[in-house]
C-alpha cells in the first residue's frame, strides 16, 4: 500500500508541473488557435535564467526566481511578436512549422552558448522533508504542490472573475466580435503569451528544483508531455489542463512502477492517440464545427 502511495506522489509532482506547462499551451491555443511548440523550451530558458541568477554573487534567491519568471514572460511576448504575429492569417501548417523552428532555435541557441553538458543547479528551496508513517514527502514536493495549487486558483479567478479575464475569453470566443466591442485583441494575445510563458518559467524553476540539472533540451520532453496533457484534458480548457497534467503524471509513474520503464512513452503517447481517436476534443474540450 505504501508503495502505491509513493507511486501516486511520484506521479502527482511531475503531473502538477505538466499541468502548469499545459496551462500555457491551452491558453495560447484558446486565444491564438495555434500550438506554441516552443512553449516547452521556455521552461528551459527559465531554468537557465534561474541558474545564472543563483550563481551570480549578490543576487538573492527570490530575485533570481522573479527574474526567471519575468524573463520567460517577456520571451514569450517577443516570440509571439517576431514569429507568430506576421503569420496570423497564414495557413496553420505554416504557423506550426514556424513554432517548431522557434523551438529548435531556442534549444540550439542555448546549446551553442552553454554546450550540451548539463549544469547543476544549486539547491535553492530549503523546506524540510515531511514524514507520514513510512512515506517521506520531500520539501520540494510540498513546495511544488502548493505553488501549483495557488497558481491554479489564481488563474481560475483571473479568467472567470476579472474584467481582463472576460476580455480574454471574449477574444478567444470570437476575435472579430471582441475587436468590435473595443477589446484590443493584439494586447490580449500578448498578455496570454506573457502569462503562459511566465507559468512555463515557474514550471522550469520547479523542474530544476526536483531534478537539479539545466541543459538545452530540458524543456523538450516535459513540453511535449504537457502538450499531450493539454490535449487529453481538452485543449482550450483551463481545468482540462490541470486534470490532463495530473492524469499524465500518474499514468507515467504507474507504468514505470508496474509495467516497464521503457514503455512509459509508448503508454503516454498511446493514451494521446486513443483520446484523439475516441474523443478528439479531450475530456473537457468543446467541439468546433466547420461550416460548409
Amino acid at each position: 500500500m505504501s508503495s502505491f502511495v509513493e507511486q501516486f506522489l511520484n506521479g502527482l509532482i511531475p503531473g502538477s508541473i505538466y499541468a502548469l506547462i499545459a496551462l500555457g499551451y491551452t491558453m495560447v491555443y484558446g486565444i491564438a488557435k495555434m500550438i506554441n511548440f516552443a512553449h516547452g523550451d521556455i521552461i528551459m530558458v527559465g531554468a537557465y535564467i534561474l541558474l545564472i541568477g543563483l550563481n551570480a554573487s549578490g543576487v538573492p534567491t527570490w530575485l533570481a526566481i522573479v527574474l526567471a519568471i519575468a524573463g520567460c514572460g517577456i520571451l514569450g511576448v517577443v516570440i509571439e511578436k517576431v514569429a507568430y504575429k506576421p503569420l496570423r492569417n497564414a495557413p496553420s501548417l505554416a504557423v506550426l512549422i514556424t513554432a517548431i523552428g522557434m523551438s529548435y532555435f531556442l534549444q540550439n541557441l542555448f546549446l551553442v552558448i552553454f554546450s550540451s553538458k548539463g549544469k547543476s543547479v544549486p539547491r535553492f528551496i530549503h523546506v524540510k522533508d515531511f514524514k507520514i508513517g513510512d512515506i517521506t514527502v520531500s520539501g520540494n514536493m510540498i513546495v511544488t504542490l502548493i505553488v501549483t495549487i495557488i497558481i491554479m486558483i489564481l488563474l481560475t479567478v483571473f479568467i472567470n472573475k476579472t474584467k481582463l479575464g472576460s476580455a480574454l475569453r471574449a477574444v478567444s470566443e470570437d476575435k472579430g466580435a471582441a475587436s468590435l466591442m473595443g477589446i484590443n485583441s493584439d494586447l490580449m494575445i500578448s498578455m496570454t503569451f506573457a502569462i503562459g510563458s511566465a507559468l512555463a518559467g515557474v514550471a522550469g524553476i520547479l523542474w530544476v528544483s526536483m531534478y537539479d540539472k539545466a541543459y538545452p533540451t530540458l524543456g523538450a520532453i516535459p513540453g511535449i508531455k504537457a502538450f499531450v496533457a493539454a490535449v487529453i484534458g481538452g485543449i482550450g480548457s483551463v481545468p482540462g489542463a490541470m486534470i490532463g497534467g495530473i492524469a499524465l503524471g500518474l499514468v507515467e509513474s504507474f507504468t514505470k512502477a508496474y509495467i516497464s520503464g521503457e514503455l512509459v512513452d509508448a503508454f503516454v503517447f498511446g493514451l494521446l492517440i486513443i483520446v484523439l481517436i475516441f474523443k478528439p476534443t479531450g475530456i473537457l474540450g468543446r467541439k468546433r464545427i466547420e461550416k460548409v
Partner: peptide, 9 residues
C-alpha cells in the same frame, strides 16, 4: 541545427 531552425522560421 541552429541554422536549420532559422531556415524554418
Amino acid at each position: 541545427m541552429l541554422m536549420y531552425a532559422v531556415i524554418l522560421i
